[in-house]
Design a protein around this nucleic acid. Structure first.
Length: 576
RNA sequence: GCGCCCGUGGCUCAGUGGAUAGAGCACCCGCCUUCUAAGCGGGUUGUCGUUGGUUCGAAUCCAACCGGGCGCGCCA
């Protein structure tokens, strides 16, 4: 509807422009269709007249009337029932029953594709990418949930999406990990003359995996050199950690297409090739024994080291090779989801990609702000060194995957999140996610019981497109929803308009990359449905025709709500 | 010092140029012989951090300031 109105008003404005010999220089995108808060202002409104007032030297009210004259004739009586011009210059539109009918029809005919887009570009989303040196925590979970919801949303909007996890499985941190593991291993085998280095990984982190490794491999490593043992231990440790991470992410309904190993970048010369390319683009120089990137010229605050004087690579160098590889794989868009504590890296990575001739318009980084864990209102301070980390696994076990997903997706990534463990737990009654799911379960229950009314109402198990075909033989369908012009009609209309706005929601949320909008929409929709549930009884033995209309209506609402829940990665419980 | 994010009822947050700023939680009052009361209805709660500016119109855009979080390595 928004598109139809935009188009109509745009053409009308052009006509006004011609008649009055002026040039508005008006773009179609500057026509904004809004949803008025007041019922007396119609279902949609447009304030375009205000924008044109200055140029046309007429009052907004006069201009709105001019536009009204042009569009009223061609539209009233079809999808639009009425158009009014209200002071100080708004155009207000009221939709017709035919429009509402068409929305329900569209949903029922193509339940799984309602609002779905197609033929959108390909996107690579990289997220989580936690180090394989320890367990996931709630901050990773936010990144994970956001990434997964964004991926689901973009897929729904018709993008070809790949999800990727980058594993930092090499470099100095892994060497250090291996050395720490070696000490832990030997101590576990009773060789107590081994001591941890000052910058060692803490023992609490290493102990459990080491015990597992000893159990599985016995003492078969003991005859190797220390260097070989620490390498082997690091590899085994990372396997265990990564598998745990995978399992936890899976329990949050998150699966990646690719687990991309940093090690393969080194093994396949991709880093050397990247450095050669930079050199041939004349983007590097040597100073103090190190190789530097001329990143200041490219928008960074200063130049950056790529190869240290000890010949080791910096993180930036490997990251650049990784991203160059992403570009070479031919995606239309490349999205990274990072914790906000990494925001300082954005300018240097952007700079080096420019230096590598990558089209940085294809590249964007979304930063998710911190998550504070609290318990009964008091913030829980976590320290890796002290071993006071609350792992993601503990939180999942305590509050469940759905509650985590909802709490972490409901607010914008720009906002930091306070995650209260106690609240999320007792959330079984207070958490919005259960409210939404309860609405879904109630609708399911109605559909399940519909066959008690008539054997024809076997709506629970059949796909809705078949149900619709079956019921559509009568062209009086939905008459009972629309006949009444009183309060019920207002309520039905509000709900159907909400269903109609789902299409726009998908477009907007996917373009602006804001999956949290889906969460709010789902809540609103559930809220409207609960109101309907309280006022209108669906299953009524005395009026089967009315029951049928309401059943199909419920089916449509349930379909859209299910689509939201699927995008959010939440369960759709049929009973609660 | 510089950079990024945030500041909206007691609490947690929506709203990012439109008409009288919205939800949830909390608090008070009502509603189960009726498809699930994990629900519904009603009530109380606001200098939209401050000050200026742009605009017919600002919580929304711009500037300065105040307050909070995070980041500024030849660490990863």
């Amino acid at each position: 509807m928004e598109l139809i109105l935009t188009d109509l008003i745009y053409k009308a404005c052009l006509e006004v422009q011609d008649k009055h010999y002026v040039n508005f220089n008006l773009k179609e995108t500057s026509i904004i269709i809004e949803k008025p808060k007041l019922a007396s202002h119609g279902d949609f409104s447009c304030g375009i007249a205000f924008k044109l007032a200055g140029q046309l030297k007429k009052t907004p009210l006069e201009i709105a009337k001019l536009i009204y004259e042009i569009i009223a004739k061609q539209t009233i009586g079809k999808l639009i029932e009425d158009i009014t011009v209200t002071s100080p210059g708004y155009l207000n539109f009221t939709v017709s029953k035919l429009y509402l009918y068409q929305i329900l029809k569209e949903i029922l005919e193509q339940p799984n594709n309602y609002g779905r887009g197609q033929n959108q570009p390909s996107v690579l989303i990289e997220y989580v990418s936690a180090n394989p040196t320890g367990p996931l925590h709630i901050g990773h979970a936010r990144n994970a949930v956001f990434g997964s919801c964004l991926a689901n949303l973009l897929k729904y909007a018709g993008y070809k999406v790949e999800e990727e996890f980058y594993i930092n499985d090499t470099g100095q941190q892994i060497t250090k990990l291996g050395q720490s593991l070696l000490v832990c291993y030997k101590r576990q085998l009773g060789l107590s003359n081994y001591n941890y280095a000052i910058d060692s990984y803490p023992e609490w982190l290493l102990l459990e995996p080491i015990q597992q490794i000893i159990k599985e491999h016995g003492q078969e490593l003991i005859n190797l050199t220390d260097l070989e043992i620490s390498d082997k231990l690091a590899t085994l440790f990372m396997d265990i950690t990564i598998n745990n991470q995978k399992a936890e992410l899976n329990s949050l309904k998150i699966e990646f297409n690719t687990w991309y190993s940093e090690k393969t970048l080194h093994d396949s010369c991709k880093i050397k090739d990247m450095l050669k390319l930079l050199a041939s683009n004349n983007q590097t120089y040597e100073s103090e024994g190190a190789i530097w990137l001329k990143s200041k010229e490219l928008g960074d605050e200063r130049d950056r080291v790529l190869v240290k004087s000890n010949n080791h690579l910096t993180y930036l160098a490997t990251d650049a090779a990784y991203h160059l590889d992403k570009f070479k794989r031919g995606f239309d868009y490349i999205i990274n989801i990072w914790g906000s504590d990494h925001h300082g890296q954005v300018p240097s990575l952007t700079a080096i990609l420019k230096a590598l001739n990558c089209d940085i318009n294809k590249f964007s980084v979304i930063l998710t702000q911190m998550v504070n864990l609290s318990k009964n209102g008091e913030i829980v301070r976590m320290s890796k060194r002290m071993g006071t980390v609350i792992t993601l696994k503990e939180v999942i076990d305590e509050v469940g995957a759905d509650a985590i997903r909802y709490f972490l997706i409901e607010s914008s990534p720009n906002n930091s999140v306070n995650f209260d463990l106690e609240l999320a737990k007792k959330a079984s009654s207070e958490n919005p996610v259960f409210y939404i799911q309860y609405a879904y379960a109630r609708m399911s229950s109605i559909l399940r019981k519909a066959t008690n009314l008539s054997p024809d109402f076997d709506f629970f198990n059949l796909p809705s497109e078949q149900i619709y075909l079956k019921c559509n033989k009568k062209n009086t369908l939905f008459a009972h929803l629309f006949d009444d012009n009183g309060e019920n009609y207002t309520l039905h209309k509000k709900l159907i308009l909400k269903l109609a706005s789902f299409k726009n929601l998908i477009t907007e949320a996917s373009q602006s990359q804001q999956p949290h909008k889906i969460a709010h929409y789902a809540y609103d929709l559930a809220n409207d449905l609960q109101k309907f549930y309280e006022t209108a009884k669906v299953l009524n033995i005395d009026d089967l025709n009315q029951s049928l209309d309401r059943l199909l209506f419920i089916l449509a609402v349930r379909t859209v709500l299910a689509n939201c829940l699927i995008i959010l990665g939440l369960n759709t419980p049929e009973k609660m």
